[in-house]
């Protein structure tokens, strides 16, 4: 049987569509898709509602995107607000804005600025993140994790005092990784090989293997060196 070339799904303006397998999916404006989508490339601008799982090699998203199922991708570039009810898994993700994942998050590369909320485990190869707002994760397991605070100006302090969502901090239960470099992080347990605790952190317990660096004045309840 000869294979038909896949068709595209293009929505401009306000409209809806069914799921299926597509080549290109492009939604500009307000789009709603019922049913699972599989596509080579997925681009969403504006307000995109997806009521089921999404699978795409390239994902680009500007604006607001809601996914009721899980999201799988090769590469993703996201600006704006992303909410995912299921899990998130992919190779690399560049984020500028807020991402909210209810399930687990599995990535090889996560870079970005803004904030993230992961309900389950954030498992990644490399994470480099600039905090601009409140971030949360239940558990983080990584090879390398670098958390930075973006702006340290007076205005950001003022805003974060008024709106708690804008307070740049990361709250985690357990962080485990090889290389951990933290700022503005509140964690119960941090376990790692090389651990650096920067300003603004509050850590319940640190277990490290080879090296621990602590910024002066940071509160750590208990630190423990694990011998080989």
């Amino acid at each position: 049987m000869e294979k038909m070339p896949l068709s595209d799904l293009i929505i401009n303006g306000v409209s809806g569509a069914g799921g299926g397998t597509y080549d290109n999916v492009r939604i500009d404006g307000v789009g709603k898709v019922n049913g699972a989508i599989e596509a080579r490339s997925f681009k969403g601008n504006g307000h995109v509602h997806l009521n089921d799982d999404v699978k795409a090699i390239e994902v680009e998203c500007n604006g607001i995107m809601n996914v009721k199922g899980s999201l799988r991708f090769g590469n993703m570039k996201a600006d704006g607000l992303l909410t995912i009810k299921g899990g998130l898994s992919g190779e690399s993700c560049a984020l500028n804005g807020m991402i909210n994942v209810k399930g687990d998050c599995e990535l090889e590369n996560l870079t970005g600025r803004g904030g993230f909320t992961v309900g389950g485990l954030l498992s990644a190869g490399k994470v480099e993140f600039c905090l601009q707002g409140q971030s949360k994760a239940n558990e983080i397991g990584v090879e390398s994790l670098v958390i930075r605070q973006e702006n340290k100006g007076v205005w950001s302090k003022l805003w974060s005092g008024m709106i708690p969502k804008l307070k740049p901090e990361l709250r985690v239960g357990i962080i485990e990784g090889d290389y951990i470099d933290l700022e503005n992080t509140i964690a119960d347990i941090v376990r790692g090989n090389v651990v650096m605790i920067g300003p603004g952190c509050s850590i319940g317990r640190v277990e490290y293997r080879s090296k621990l660096t602590v910024y002066p004045g940071v509160r750590i309840m208990k630190e423990e060196k694990i011998s080989e």
Partner: peptide, 11 residues
């Protein structure tokens, strides 16, 4: 093995 390896293998 290290934490990173364990998580990578799990992924």
């Amino acid at each position: 093995i290290s934490y990173g390896q364990l998580y990578r293998w799990k992924r």
